[in-house]
């Protein structure tokens, strides 16, 4: 029933009901019906300090949501809660996620002792894992690098392997925690294009955690701004605005988001 296997030293986070959408047990909360992700009244705290103070969030199947916020606002905590990676964190609330969830981290997190292909097939049980992994690597433009060690690749290439590893599982939900944060500006722009192509091809629901307003506008259908552990604002991005920097409304949206984040007087 639980969507996530327990960790090495799993301590159940108290009070949280976690369920997989589409499971037949019928305990999935009614609020999550039709959505890929449904989060209700999520509370998480480290020690006495509350990090998430009652977050509600829905993500439709195939929807791309960017989670924006200043450092320490709880956006990574929310993503880790959705990924089931917060065993030792106290809290409560209701989380419902699909069965197949993939996570892309800020670091590519490739096992240094396994080849590129081995990293992509990690955890795949299907007999055609290798051929599917080769296909995924070709999709991210790394055909022919299957036998390389991770350290032989550039930072951008390593992150592309991480994307291939996520997508080879055909996730219904892709969680990405500042996946391009460690890349240089040019590589980041190329990766934006690649991610858009991959998402268009595989149609997972996406939750992208970022602190980059322009990245959020370029990629997301909807931008959720988190502040002090609560959803502060939600802004919709129309396709016209996201595709062109000089489109009407682009600059206004950018200014609004910066204001949401408490950055005022930025002129460029």
């Amino acid at each position: 029933m639980a969507a996530h296997p327990g960790g090495l030293t799993a301590v159940a986070s108290s009070g949280t009901v976690r369920s997989a959408v589409g499971s037949s047990s019928g305990t999935a909360p009614a609020t999550g019906a039709g959505n890929a992700v449904s989060v209700r009244n999520l509370i998480r705290s480290f020690g006495p300090k509350g990090v998430l103070n009652g977050v509600d969030l829905d993500i439709a199947p195939g929807e791309f949501v960017a989670l924006l916020g200043p450092s320490g606002c709880g956006k990574s905590t929310l993503l880790r809660a959705l990924a089931g990676l917060d065993h030792d964190v106290r809290g409560s609330g209701v989380i419902s996620v699909p069965e197949r969830v993939s996570v892309v981290f800020q670091d590519s997190r490739l096992l240094p002792w396994d080849s590129v292909l081995g990293n992509v097939t990690l955890g795949l049980r299907e007999h055609d894992a290798d051929s599917r992994a080769r296909k995924a690597l070709a999709e991210v433009g790394l055909a022919g690098r299957e036998k390389s060690w991770p350290h032989e690749l550039s930072g951008g290439e390593q992150q592309r392997v991480a994307l291939a590893r996520s997508l080879v599982r055909e996730p219904q939900l892709l969680l990405a925690d500042e996946p391009f944060g460690a890349l240089d500006a040019l590589t980041r722009i190329k990766m934006h294009g690649l991610l858009q192509d991959l998402v268009a091809a595989h149609r997972p629901a996406v939750l992208l955690v970022t602190h980059d307003v322009d990245e959020a506008i370029a990629l997301a259908d909807r931008i959720v701004v988190l502040d002090s552990g609560r959803v502060a604002t939600v802004r919709t991005v129309t396709p016209e605005i996201s595709t062109a920097v000089d489109a009407a409304g682009h600059e206004a949206l950018r200014r609004d988001l910066l204001a949401d984040l408490g950055v005022v007087g930025t002129s460029h």
Binding site: G7, V101, S102, V103, R109, L111, D114, G123
Partner: peptide
């Protein structure tokens, strides 16, 4: 610990976790 988290997100079984992450990491 980041590799342990990764193993969890890709759904490794305990046996596969030992074979793919623990043993090579301890080598």
């Amino acid at each position: 610990l980041r590799y342990v988290e990764l193993a969890q997100t890709v759904g490794l079984s305990r046996a596969a976790f030992i074979r793919k992450v623990v043993l090579p990491g301890a080598l």
